[in-house]
């Protein structure tokens, strides 16, 4: 083939982009020091860690913490946000708390949770969840403020019981906001989980990364990062996107 006249498809562009990144990485590794192992070395390390090392169990611990913290933060944050969005007095009363919560550094919350609750699993999950609650609340408050009351009136005229009204008329209006909170939440939560593990746990991806840092073991650090990013991408592709497609089917 001569000149490529048609632009590459989106998938094609993505592939080219990934290959370019790998090539640059390999070139930098060849030119550079032992502190940057190439993609092949990292891949070999990754396989070794997965088959003979603790990689899979570390991933399991970290994912379990992500899931627990995510569930707690979404439930608490959504409830707070919806309440604040629908009630002006509640909003006025707690708005300042929300601003505070959004601006306390994650590390401070983590230290305080470990100090106050103890160096255990509850403290770890609480610390992560607390970091995410204000963000979820802010997003859902926006959603609750923009509710279309004309549809809620329909539910009222039809005398829908509370549960049906929520499922059919109220919550569907908030789906876009739930999805936004989920997206930003997952990426925020898994980053904070690693810090929590580094500071006060003896397993999980964050703990292991700290260990490898002390040994200057860049290959293992990169291998762990790559595996975790792969897992999060899989969650996005296999859970979040299909869920979103299902919830927004009616827009198609």
């Amino acid at each position: 083939m001569g000149l490529v006249r048609a632009p590459l498809s989106e998938a094609g562009l993505r592939l080219v982009s990934a290959l370019l990144l790998l090539a640059l990485w390999q070139a930098a590794a060849l030119a550079g020091s032992t502190l940057l192992p190439g993609p092949v070395t990292v891949a070999r390390t990754l396989i070794e860690d997965a088959t003979q090392g603790p990689l899979l169990s570390d991933l399991g611990y970290t994912l379990a913490r992500v899931a627990a913290a995510f569930a707690v933060a979404m439930a608490a944050g959504s409830a707070i946000g919806m309440l604040m969005g629908r009630s002006r007095p509640v909003d006025g009363l707690f708005d300042l708390w929300l601003v505070l919560g959004l601006n306390v550094p994650a590390l401070v919350i983590i230290y305080l949770c470990y100090l106050w609750i103890g160096l255990d699993e509850v403290a770890a999950v609480a610390a992560v969840a607390l970091n995410k609650v204000p963000q979820t609340a802010v997003i859902l408050r926006e959603g609750a403020r923009s509710l279309d009351t004309s549809l809620l009136q329909v539910a009222q005229v039809l005398r829908l019981p509370w549960g049906r009204k929520m499922r059919r008329a109220y919550l569907p209006q908030l789906y876009p906001y739930f999805m936004a909170a989920t997206r930003s939440g997952l990426s925020l939560i898994w980053k904070i989980v690693l810090v929590v593990e580094l500071v006060g746990r003896s397993n999980g991806v964050g703990f292991r990364l700290g260990l490898y840092f002390q040994f200057f073991d860049v290959a293992n650090i990169l291998a762990y990062s790559a595996s975790f990013i792969a897992v999060m991408l899989a969650i996005e592709g296999l859970v979040i996107r299909p869920l979103e497609r299902r919830l927004t089917r009616w827009r198609a």
Binding site: Q153, V154, V157, L158, R168, P172, W250
Partner: peptide
């Protein structure tokens, strides 16, 4: 039992025609 037809249809956009009508019925 009240039926109300509003100035605009006010259908739930996320429910099919069938489910919008079923909304008025007991499950």
């Amino acid at each position: 039992r009240i039926g109300f037809v509003f100035q605009t249809p006010r259908l739930m956009p996320w429910l099919s025609a069938r489910d919008n009508v079923r909304l008025a019925l007991d499950p």
